[in-house]
Design a protein around this nucleic acid. Structure first.
Lengths: 344, 344
DNA sequence: TGCTAGCACTCTACATCTCAGAGTGCTAAA
DNA sequence: TTTAGCACTCTGAGATGTAGAGTGCTAGCA
């Protein structure tokens, strides 16, 4: 089922215009803007055909056409061309991370904000695949006799959000010794390795077993527990800019979708850029939600995912371009940081 | 200008019923529910008087009455009685913090969530007055040669979110020495003290000046910079439950108010529980927003503020009761933690 | 065979009108 | 001071009408 060139061109025009305006596209409008050499009647015939093939919908008899889900899918697969970013947008992305960047959580948050700002949609960034990141240093900083702060320094940043509480009190020396042991055991390995190799208990380890157990558990929680992941959601209020959300119930539905992380995670599982159309579970055409997601690499390894959440009538090509560019910049920054660190 | 007993009773009834229903209260309704021994005409006369005095408003001629802002103020000042919490609610509050509590940020977040859940309004918690908290320990954990994690342990928890980046590279020994120095200088003092006493530079300090400068700057930022404060906003979507937000523009306005921290901070500046009525800058009666705020104490010192944000038609007495109870529980927990620590 | 002009048809969006119901304010009497 | 009664006002829902947008179809043309 191949579309003729003219049908493709019409379909593309309908989608482009509908994405821009959110109002149904009429044959007359198409004639004026794209096909001055055709009559509106001819275009009507084509539109009718496209509707029969399932690519277009009519909200009611005397309205223009809007794209169907099938049309969006076709668009994303075949029609979409890269939408070049403006110089301002590129400059914004390039300059965004120049100031001091600290922990992973801050990078995550800033990235989400940047993407939301440029695309004008809601965005979510989640650090996910820390499993593959290499441990450079582990620190156990005593806070009291019975608690310590676990700091894990990795190639791509610092994980620093675990406060550990112990049942027993330990001396500073004990903390220090177990930190040394931890470092000897795990430097150069990945978090995933820790998950596996914790069985090899020799006599030295046995001495520090009670404290190591807590630490290892905490690390495991990092790699497994969804709720412990670094996640940032930014630009929720951007949906108010889009006319399909003129209705409170739609807004409410969107907010509830977006505020429950478990609804979003499944759509972020992609190795590359991926578009999920009609993510919400409603049939209502107008309120359907789509997610464009990408996974971010640092020095070749996946470390997290990012998603842009908006109405199905979304500017996919722009979103994809932004995600690609931001991804490149992130990778570059991380590389420079590592490089920088090694030079010292 | 004192209200007669009967007028007070009528005003209270109007407010109570309006808060519950969000629909204007008629004389007939009041007669049936509160004053079976009076005729509706008599109640009408009283309502008319109250309207003339500025306590009531009529949306239009043939509607019932709704409370004016003045009425809410009068209610909060004179009429409001403590609204006892249910056993379930008390139990929920008491048990909420039993699991492992770690850093301040987690307490902040959980508190906000708890309050939002129980009151059914949006809540915001901000840790503010860390200035008065006593420093127990300062750690500078080297991450690379040119960066370190600053950990400050205080009586009421741990501040642990500053990653410092230095211009120069330092050795581990240097980090250790400056940490020792920092501790000798600041243990037992408050953050506010640091703000003041940083001038007293003797020769020993001079040696570590370049690193100390960065640390002290970071600490100062903690006490001054709004954006570095720990803040949690929870239950934004609760407004959808309230009928005054059936309109997207109202929701949008609320969201934009709530998502700009600087709009909220000024209303959280109170030593005790305080009610700010009509916080938003619109004249529209129906959409006006109010904030109930309280400051939270730990072992007698103010450490933060909490605010409950909702429509002016808010169940003030319930909100106040919840805030009071949560405040007591928080104080108790912090006390136990400190006690616990000292025993070891 | 593909394209086009013309026209009847359908549907929406908006304005206007009507009408029942709710609630009031006022008056006169108890 | 309270009450019964009544006229008055306003809302909100439904019905009706109209202009405009856009279509589908048909017949004729290249």
């Amino acid at each position: 089922m191949k579309l003729s060139d003219r049908k493709q061109k019409i379909l593309q025009a309908v989608i482009d215009d509908y994405v821009a305006d959110a109002s149904p596209i009429s044959s007359k409008h198409l004639q004026e803007s794209v096909f001055p050499d055709l009559s509106s009647a001819t275009i009507r015939n084509e539109l009718m055909a496209l509707e029969e093939m399932g690519y277009l919908l009519q909200p009611h008899t005397s309205a223009g056409r809007i794209p169907s889900l099938k049309a969006y899918e076709y668009y994303v697969d075949s029609l979409m061309s890269a939408s070049p970013l403006t110089v301002e947008e590129i400059a914004k992305i390039e300059n965004y991370f120049t100031n001091q960047i600290s922990g992973i959580d801050e990078i995550v948050k800033k990235t989400a904000k940047l993407i939301s700002d440029i695309t004008n949609y809601t965005s979510v960034v989640v650090v996910d695949n820390l499993r593959d990141v290499i441990i450079e240093k582990i620190k156990l900083v005593p806070l009291g006799k019975k608690s310590a702060l676990l700091v894990i320094v990795t190639g791509s940043g610092v994980i620093k959000d675990s406060i550990l509480e112990f049942k027993n009190a330990y001396s500073d020396d004990y903390f220090k010794a177990s930190t040394d042991l931890l470092n000897r055991m795990y430097i150069g390995k990945t978090l995933a390795d820790i998950d596996l190799c914790s069985h090899t208990i020799d006599c030295e380890i046995e001495q520090y077993l009670s404290i190591l157990q807590v630490v290892i558990d905490a690390i495991k929680r990092h790699t497994v527990d969804l709720s412990k992941r670094n996640i940032a959601l930014e630009g929720q209020s951007k949906i108010f800019d889009h006319p399909e959300y003129r209705d409170v119930d739609k807004v409410r539905e969107f907010m509830s979708l977006v505020s429950h992380k478990e609804n979003i995670y499944p759509h972020l599982k992609s190795d590359n850029i991926q578009v999920s159309i009609n993510v919400s579970n409603t049939d209502d055409k107008a309120s359907s939600v789509s997610i464009v997601s990408a996974s971010y690499r640092v020095t070749g390894k996946n470390i997290g995912n990012v998603g842009v959440i908006g109405p199905t009538r979304m500017d996919y090509s722009k979103v994809v371009s932004v995600l690609e560019h931001v991804g490149r910049v992130l990778d570059k920054i991380a590389f420079e940081r590592i490089d920088d660190d090694e030079k010292c």
